[in-house]
Structures are given as structure tokens and as C-alpha cells.
């Protein structure tokens, strides 16, 4: 085999791994346990609404009615970056956003305690990308990567939903097709096959984002309307309508491949004592009160029953700590 051929093969192999990892940022909500975080609902809402206002101004500069799908794409394009998302990039940098880890000292501590820190930084493609810090929204702690899922990845969910609808599927059938296709993507190129992690929280955010795009400029209660020759922001974006406790990866456990789970479990054990911390106890109690069975959970249950996925409850902190105690 010539050197040039080997170079090309190596580039293709490593490139595919990297490209997959790029949209699969990992996050660690355990690290934020017991740490104070200000609620960022209003701040993040203000950031998204600023972009919606600018979209409206852009549409009015054009001065004519446009198809809703075109409006959706324009919004998606405004914050799309190279593999990453503008809202997430802003939220991990802005001094207006309270997040964890934050500041050099906490960043160093995070490097030591990161849930995925036990895996090889060379061979674990999930670690080739920066971990997403944790923020708090409406009482729920979530990785900033969820903004990418809600407003970025969900664009593709919505396209699948729309495609199925245009082919004559009922809204329920179209939703089902989009969610199943999204799960396949998360299992293969975006998640489990590349980084060894299937994040159910990511799927939840994708699902909610699909409805955000659907209702952005259509339906009974759209965000943006074309009214009397003028585009306007009729209903501001509000994260509270989308975020649920299932977005917290310390509450809604991920599904791991075996090689990764062995290492993650060891790190997770370090948090067992924190289950009794007042902040953690109160937060998890509040989560339980708000918890409901989501569409994503129904689909995962179906896959578990069919033997296609392991039961996510086996990867929960409660199970890990219980097994360790026995």
C-alpha cells in the first residue's frame, strides 16, 4: 500500500470519527450538584428572542410574505455554525450566563472530576469535543448542548416530520417517523456508535425543538406572523414551554456501551454521597413531581421491550449506588 493511499485511508477514518463527534458534545450535570447556579431562563429567552426580532427585521426588509418553511430555515441559518450552534457558543462564553464549570479554578476541578474523564482522550471520540457546561432553566439543570439540540438538530427532526406530512402521513404518524429516525441517528452517527453514549436527554430536546420549528410561524399560536403586510413577533420564545426534568442527564440516565460504562460507573460512584445533599435532594424531588412519560420515553421503552436497547434505569445513579452498597 502506498504512503499516499495510507494517508488517505487514515484521514477518512479519523475524519469520520471526528465529524460524528462534532455534533455529539457530552455534558456532565453531576459536576454541578451542590453548586449554586442562577436561573438562566430569562437570559436565554432574551438571547433567542433577540435573534427572532432580527429575523423579523430581516423579513420586513424583504417586504413580502414568505412561506413558513423559508422563515424556519432563515432562523436556523442565523445561528448555525460549523457543526456547532450560535446559541450554545454564546451561552458558554457570555458573562451574563451563570454556568458550571466556570472560571479557571472550577475548570481545573472539572478536568479532574469530569464524568467521562476516565476514558482515553485519544480513542474516545466523545472527548475530542469540548464538554458542555451546565446551566439552570426553570428549575432544571441541563447542558448547554441542549440549546444546540433544541434549536439546531431539531431543524432536521422538523424536516423529517414535514416530509412525512407532505407524503400524506397524519400528524401523529409524521411525529412517530421523525422521532424514530432521530433515535436511529442518535444510536448511529451522532451518539452511541461514535461516542459510546446514547443521550435520552438529547432526544428529548430534539423532540421539543421539532415542535418549536413547527409552531414558529404556523398553527394556532405561532411565534412569528405576517399581518397586514408586516412581519412581527407575536409570541416571544419561552424555554419554559420546552424544558423538562428529562433534559438533566444526572436524572434521565444515558445508555452507555459496555466499554464506556465501566469507566463512567467508577466516576459516578463518587457522587453517591451527594444524593443526600440538600440541593440535590430538593432538586430531584422537584423533578419527580414534574416528571411525566414523554414520547421519547415511550419509544425507548418499546425498544427495551423488543430487546434492541438496554434498560436506561440500569445506568442511573440510584442503581449504581445501590449496587455498590450491596
Amino acid at each position: 500500500m502506498s504512503l499516499r493511499f495510507r494517508l488517505a485511508a487514515a484521514a477518512l477514518f479519523l475524519g469520520l470519527g471526528g465529524a460524528g463527534a462534532a455534533q455529539g458534545l457530552e455534558t456532565d450535570q453531576f459536576f454541578a450538584w451542590g453548586r449554586h447556579l442562577d436561573d438562566m431562563t430569562e437570559v436565554l429567552n432574551a438571547r433567542v428572542n433577540l435573534e427572532l426580532e432580527r429575523l423579523v427585521a430581516e423579513l420586513n426588509r424583504d417586504g413580502r410574505e414568505r412561506r413558513c418553511q423559508n422563515v424556519r430555515f432563515r432562523f436556523f441559518k442565523r445561528h448555525r455554525m460549523l457543526f456547532f450552534d450560535g446559541f450554545e457558543t454564546w451561552s458558554v462564553n457570555s458573562p451574563l450566563v451563570s454556568r458550571s464549570p466556570s472560571g479557571p479554578e472550577e475548570m481545573r476541578e472539572f478536568e479532574r472530576r469530569y464524568l467521562y474523564g476516565g476514558t482515553s482522550p485519544l480513542f474516545d471520540t466523545g472527548r475530542w469535543m469540548p464538554p458542555s457546561p451546565t446551566v439552570e432553566v426553570n428549575g432544571v439543570r441541563l447542558g448547554t448542548d441542549k440549546l444546540t439540540h433544541l434549536l439546531g438538530t431539531a431543524w432536521y427532526y422538523h424536516r423529517w416530520y414535514r416530509k412525512a406530512s407532505l407524503r400524506g402521513a397524519t400528524p401523529a404518524e409524521a411525529e412517530d417517523r421523525a422521532v424514530r429516525r432521530g433515535l436511529q441517528h442518535e444510536i448511529t452517527i451522532l451518539g452511541r456508535a461514535v461516542s459510546g453514549v446514547l443521550s435520552l436527554a438529547d432526544l428529548e430536546a430534539n423532540y421539543e425543538g421539532m415542535w418549536f420549528y413547527e409552531h414558529l410561524c404556523a398553527g394556532d399560536d405561532p411565534n412569528i406572523v405576517y399581518d397586514a403586510g408586516v412581519w412581527r413577533l407575536r409570541r416571544p420564545f419561552d424555554l419554559r414551554a420546552y424544558v423538562t426534568p428529562e433534559w438533566d442527564e444526572s436524572y434521565q440516565p444515558n445508555i452507555y456501551v459496555r466499554r464506556k460504562w465501566e469507566k463512567v460507573k467508577q466516576r459516578m460512584l463518587g457522587y453517591c454521597s451527594m444524593l443526600e445533599h440538600p440541593q440535590v435532594k430538593a432538586m430531584r424531588q422537584a423533578y419527580r413531581e414534574r416528571d411525566r412519560v414523554t414520547e421519547t420515553e415511550r419509544l425507548i421503552d418499546e425498544m427495551v421491550v423488543a430487546g434492541k436497547l438496554p434498560d436506561p434505569s440500569g445506568f442511573s445513579i440510584e442503581r449504581v449506588c445501590r449496587e455498590a452498597a450491596n
Partner: peptide
């Protein structure tokens, strides 16, 4: 770049 961003996690 946005002036306030430290880019310690990542920036574009």
C-alpha cells in the same frame, strides 16, 4: 469576536 467572550470552552 464578541468582546466579553473568554473562549476558554470554545468560540468561533
Amino acid at each position: 469576536m464578541p468582546a466579553s467572550h473568554d473562549c476558554a470552552t470554545f468560540c468561533e
